[in-house]
């Protein structure tokens, strides 16, 4: 018997097993860290066995592994990520404090990427093999080989240090310009390629010929009839990139010395702060899954055929 549920409810419920599996993998992988976690929790300072045992009990590490696992899942489900080893603060609060810089950078990068990528993608897609197309596609081809941290450093050197147009440090909006460009450039390359190929494919469809036969303007045909059909692959790319970025642009944050979630993850790994690593990875992957879900719901709005398709 199939239960008739609205399509969006089916999709929303569908992520529960994915979340469960993802969290389980994070838990399982982190169990593999060699060494006594209690020692790590205490920062490696030598302590008496009594203290060690107390600490072990306090962290619940004296329990059998399956109990620890169930406790972990229970806590995850209510958003309790535990306390960090080094700061002793709740991980959720530590993350919350770092969300803003990462989000700012994600939005800045997205903005640059969309502006550049959409413009180039449409220009290239409407005139395949024209000069905009040739230039954009060859740049994109070479661009995927560029190390983003190198580009970031070159931007700092040229625009920050030599020309002194923009500050390279600080919290202001102008300090966001170079890192946003660093992220945006890479986003724009992929986006332009996707928009181009989607647009080229769409423009040869029969319904575009129908639109021409109705006497519609080229602008209306491209902006309405073609883009609405060509837009799902680019939206997917943007959505997933955004999902990765709100978990922290690990590399770019490092280059520009921004205190976001990405640099927090690196520090947590280097200091072996397991709850913090665990919390950050859970946060990032959960954000990724949730944004994926939002994207699927969005497709249903953009393309009515998806709504009626059975999951």
């Amino acid at each position: 018997m199939t239960l008739r549920m609205p399509w969006f409810l089916r999709r929303i419920l569908g992520i529960v097993p994915t979340l469960f599996l993802t969290w389980s993998i994070v838990f399982g992988v982190l169990q593999l860290i060699p060494g006594d976690p209690v020692m790590l929790a205490l920062g490696g300072t030598p302590v008496s066995d009594e203290i060690l045992d107390n600490e072990r009990r306090r962290l619940g590490l004296d329990q059998p592994i399956y109990v620890q696992y169930l406790t972990f899942l229970k806590k995850m489900a209510v958003g309790d990520l535990g306390n960090g080893y080094s700061s002793k603060q709740p991980v959720s609060e530590m993350i919350a404090a770092r969300v803003r810089p990462s989000l700012e950078l994600a939005l800045g990068g997205l903005l640059v990427g969309i502006l550049l990528g959409v413009a180039l993608g449409i220009a290239a897609g409407l005139r395949p093999h024209g000069w905009v197309d040739t230039a954009t596609m060859s740049t994109a081809l070479v661009g995927v080989s560029l190390p983003s941290f190198w580009i970031g450093m070159l931007l700092i050197y040229v625009f920050g240090l030599q020309l002194e147009w923009v500050p390279i440090l600080g919290d202001g909006i102008d300090a966001l310009i170079l890192p946003s460009i660093t992220i945006g450039l890479f986003l724009a390359g992929g986006l332009a390629r996707l928009i181009r190929s989607a647009l080229i494919e769409t423009m040869t469809q029969d319904y575009i010929r129908t639109a021409h036969s109705k006497g519609l303007s080229t602008l209306r045909i491209v902006a309405k009839h073609a883009m609405r059909n060509a837009i799902i692959p680019p939206i997917t790319l943007l959505g997933l990139q955004f999902a990765v970025l709100i978990g922290g642009a690990v590399v770019t944050e490092r280059v520009f010395a921004r205190a976001g979630l990405g640099s927090m993850l690196i520090d947590a790994v280097l200091t072996k702060d397991i709850p913090l690593v665990q919390g950050l990875v859970v946060y990032t992957t959960t954000a990724y899954i949730v944004i994926n879900l939002l994207l699927e719901l969005l497709y249903g709005i953009v393309d009515p055929r998806i709504r009626s398709r059975r999951a």
Binding site: D206, G215, T218, D303
Partner: peptide, 28 residues
């Protein structure tokens, strides 16, 4: 020219095609 052609297309000459499935825009 193109604007003059557009004024005729769909207004004074209508056209229907072989494949009604693909000739209609699926998302509108």
């Amino acid at each position: 020219d193109l604007p003059a052609l557009r004024a005729i297309r769909g207004d004074r000459i209508g056209m229907i095609f072989q494949e009604p499935m693909t000739s209609l825009n699926p998302v509108f």
